[in-house]
């Protein structure tokens, strides 16, 4: 079992990393060329309004006071105001985080299920032509640019076949119909499902290769181990042996799953832009293009926090799976 000390020290490290990231981002964006003032006021604003602005945004205080205030506000879910929308960053990002999550989490999960099966299949046929071609096809898919996968899907299924809408998450009519309903009501419509299909397929397809390759390598390693010989001698059928082998080979998948999620989260920037999906990736690009520093800072922190937290989870799972790993390592 995982020792309390191990969990404790990893948790402390995680909290430290989160704080470090927050601090780094704060100072990084303060030191960026072009101050908040340049971005938010037009050039040639009169000194009086500049003074009012500075006072309102607390820019007169020394940097460490601003930093302290930022930390305190942050703990109360206040990440400042968006420059382009003049709305609280947290309110803007919350719904978009949800949109990203409902797209990326099921898609990556499915890619692990499908990828596990494919990896096992080409791993068990590694010496045949089918296994070799399967591996080649996987690497081919893994090297495709994800925006191009998206464009191809749009071109094929929505423009030529006309089966799915080209972009967005729900049609404007649906948004209008459910304007006064609960916020999650539009997600239950068939219109949403139609919009959901193509980006979902794109992610599953694009991220399939990683679990497949992992499972394949791990499967080949497992079949070289001695217990196979034992099972064979003991008279297990090839089918029963395959089940044992797959069980052993799937261990790395558990630990790599969160990692895959973080990669996909980074790659969502592209998928969301292609499909015009209102998630945090698309928001990041828009914020960067309009220099909305508070939003960039916060979205980037969210993505980084996800990476840090999933590493924490991976460490814990490793601890359970392989008790030899301890906090001292």
């Amino acid at each position: 079992m995982v020792s309390v000390r191990y969990v404790g020290s990893r948790a402390l490290q995680t909290v430290f990393l989160l704080w470090f990231m927050l601090t780094f981002l704060f100072f990084f964006f303060r030191l960026m060329p072009g101050s908040y003032l340049d971005i938010m006021m037009y050039r040639g604003a009169d000194p009086e309004s500049i003074a009012v602005f500075k006072e309102n945004w607390g820019l007169n205080d020394p940097l460490y006071v601003q930093y302290g205030r930022y930390l305190v506000n942050f703990l109360g879910f206040d990440a400042g105001l968006s420059v382009q929308y003049r709305e609280p960053v947290w309110d803007l990002v919350r719904r978009r985080m949800f949109n990203t999550f409902i797209l990326v989490a099921p898609a990556i999960t499915l890619s692990y299920v499908v990828g596990g099966v494919i990896g096992g299949l080409i791993g068990s046929r590694r010496d045949s032509r089918a296994g070799e071609h399967g591996l080649g096809a996987l690497i081919f898919v893994g090297s495709l640019p994800s925006f191009f996968v998206g464009i191809l899907l749009i071109a094929m299924f929505s423009m030529w076949a006309g089966l799915f809408p080209t972009s967005g998450m729900v049609s404007p009519e649906v948004t209008r119909t459910y304007r006064d309903a609960v916020w999650w009501r539009p997600y239950l419509t068939g219109d949403f499902a139609m919009h959901y299909t193509l980006p979902f397929v794109a992610i599953v397809f694009r991220y399939l290769y990683f679990p497949s390759l992992i499972i394949r390598t791990s499967f080949i390693d497992v079949t070289r181990q001695e217990f196979n010989e034992f099972y064979r001698v003991a008279g297990l059928t090839p089918r029963a042996r395959l089940r044992h082998q797959l069980k052993h080979a799937s261990l790395p998948l558990i630990t790599l799953y969160p990692l895959s999620m973080t990669w996909a989260l980074g790659g969502m920037v592209l998928i969301e832009t292609v499909f015009n999906w209102p998630g945090i990736g698309q928001m990041l690009v828009q914020a960067v293009l309009s220099r909305d520093y508070p939003v960039i800072q916060f979205v980037f922190f969210i993505i980084a926090a996800f990476v840090i937290l999933s590493n924490f989870v991976v460490d814990l799972v490793y601890g359970v799976v392989d008790p030899r790993i301890s906090a001292d390592d």
């Binding site: 060329p33 690009v285 960067v288 980037f300 993505i303």
Partner: peptide
Amino acid sequence: GVPLIPFAIVLVALL
């Protein structure tokens, strides 16, 4: 641990 594309976007665009 660096999320590749988001990090590249921020660096390339803001600098």
